[in-house]
Design a protein around this nucleic acid. Structure first.
Length: 496
RNA sequence: GCCCCAUUCGUCUAGCGGCCCAGGACGCGGCCCUCUCAAGGCCGAAACAGGGGUUCGAGUCCCCUAUGGGGCACCA
């Protein structure tokens, strides 16, 4: 059997991180088995459609590296892959169900249904459609049609017995048929509901496995009965654990929780993760680790290595929160493994977006040390502040430059020696500077260690107490600017 | 209210009857290394929701309770 999976989002605006995980798992499973991964747009509710959403969805999937074999923009033998363009097909199969007696026309209006639902709720009775149109006689139906009343098509769900959903992750799920509502299949606007469209499409698109979120379990019995009514075999089901809010309360949603306990913004859209400076490799790695585990106690891995080990049976069925702290760590690990040039290139657009123009040479000089410091690409600006903040921004004082390991005028003499050395250092790189400046430092401290002096040098050159390693910082700053700052510091000391 | 799903350290997880007085990771604390901050190394605190069974033996199987989650739309 050819493995065919699909990701079927509705275009309501963006790719939700939970949806991204669903997409990732579908993609991994298809890739593992040499099958196909299909992207289908479920836009049968025009009210919810958002312009540009399909593009945003595709951009996010592509950024994650999840390529689809069939779907919008790539086509395929089972198209179109946008449900609103398949309306005729759904109508045809709804008619078939009507003709076979598996469905019926419902003339109840939205307002009537709403009122009855409210009454049911008030009476604390059973909820769901009361099936009244199911019992309309042929004459009654004909009369209503003659009056031109709009109608929806409802499924005639079984009332007795139970329906069993075989789920790869959870085993058999048994639901009493009394719980299955006579769901609307075709809305009065002639468009299908999710239930009809997804069953018809999954059948004709030859989907073999449905990997979708937990929240769909409750409609699975309906779908299984629909397949049966059509006389089609149903796909294999695997219901993925739901992604919860950081508080553990409710489905992950900004409406429920915008900030976590630490006061940090809860990121939800894939584009937000991208803009926050997370790498797609890290995000995939992270997502694969929530609800599934690589094994061998390995946390960091490229998704390509996870694919051959991925088994639906191993997915943890329990709902889960996203360990955002772990994502930061993981992203840091991925950044640490980048080549300096690669990191410099990745960081540049983030700096530019934050309004900082940094030369390629400067960036390359600090890239190695940035590598072990960044959690997110957006963090770079903070570490590189010394590059664009001149002395005026952070007032330097003689007091701040004082150090008890450099008594008397040792600070001034040391900085002067450093200045002279930097002025002539050849080549002007971290290694050369490191050798010379360390020796100068050792010669000027009372304990013969360079450390205290290098701290003072850092402050004089970067005007920060915390900075990348001082030698690299000097290279990044450039000889001229480094000398100018040293001169200023020396003048400050001489003037006291 | 009804139905369904789930329940191992704070969090993400390993564990599919004896290898578990429960392993890894993040986070947290301590130490080491160290030019600051990191990174890295070492050490530490930290969990089988509760109760009944089944079994020679239960984190692992069954039942009940509790708790959390999902659903009960002409939304997906």
């Amino acid at each position: 059997m050819t493995i065919r999976t699909r990701f079927a989002p509705s275009p309501t605006g963006y790719l939700h991180i939970g949806g991204a995980r669903t997409a990732l798992y579908n993609w991994m499973f298809a890739r593992e088995h040499g099958g196909q991964f299909i992207l289908r747009i479920e836009d049968t509710d025009q009210k919810r459609a958002v312009k540009g959403a399909v593009q945003a969805l595709m951009d996010a999937l592509r950024w994650m590296g999840l390529d689809w074999d069939e779907g919008p923009e790539v086509g395929g033998p089972h198209g179109p892959y946008i449900q609103s363009e398949r309306a005729a097909l759904y109508r045809r199969w709804a008619d078939r169900l009507l003709a076979d007696g598996h469905a019926y026309k419902c003339f109840c209006t939205a307002d009537e249904l709403k009122a009855r639902r409210a009454a049911q709720k008030a009476a604390r009775g059973d909820q769901g459609y009361d099936r009244r149109c199911r019992h309309l006689s042929p004459d009654e139906v004909a009369a209503r049609e003659r009056d031109g009343l709009p109608f929806a098509v409802r499924f005639k769900a079984p009332i007795e017995g139970v329906t069993v959903i075989p789920d790869v992750i959870r085993g058999d799920i048994t639901v009493p048929n009394a719980q299955i509502a006579d769901a609307v299949l075709l809305k009065s606007d002639g468009l299908p509901t999710y239930h009809l469209a997804n069953v018809v499409d999954d059948h004709f698109m030859e989907i073999s496995h449905i990997l979708r979120a937990d929240e769909w379990i409750s409609s699975a019995p309906l779908h299984i009965n629909l397949y049966a009514a059509f006389g089609w075999p149903h796909p294999v089901y695997a219901h993925l654990p739901l992604v919860l809010n950081p508080s553990g309360r409710g489905k992950l949603s900004k409406r429920t929780q915008a900030f976590d306990d630490g006061g940090r913004e809860v990121l939800i859209k894939v584009e937000e993760f991208r803009d926050a400076g997370y790498l797609p490799q890290a995000l995939n790695n992270f997502l694969a680790n929530v609800g599934w585990a690589f094994g061998d106690d390995r946390e960091k891995f490229p998704i390509e290595e996870a694919i051959p080990r991925f088994r639906l049976e191993d997915i943890n069925p329990a709902p889960t929160r996203l360990p955002y702290d772990k994502l930061d760590w993981l992203n840091g690990q991925w950044i640490q493994d980048m080549e300096p040039l690669e990191l410099a290139r990745a960081v540049k657009p983030f700096l530019e977006r934050q309004g900082h123009e940094v030369g390629a040479e400067a960036l390359l000089a600090v890239a190695p040390s940035l590598r072990v410091r960044l959690k997110r690409l957006t963090d770079a600006a903070g570490f590189l502040k010394f590059l664009w903040e001149d002395g005026d921004a952070a007032p330097l004082t003689a007091g701040r430059l004082a150090n008890n390991k450099l008594p008397g005028d040792a600070v001034r003499r040391g900085l002067q020696a450093a200045r002279d050395y930097i002025a002539g250092a050849q080549p002007f790189d971290a290694e050369t500077l490191g050798a010379g400046l360390t020796a100068i430092g050792e010669a000027h401290t009372t304990n013969g260690k360079a450390g205290p002096f290098l701290g003072v040098l850092r402050l004089a050159v970067t005007r920060q107490d915390v900075s990348p390693p001082v030698f690299e910082s000097i290279v990044a700053l450039g000889r001229e600017r480094a000398l100018a700052r040293l001169d200023a510091a020396i003048a400050l000391l001489a003037g006291q």
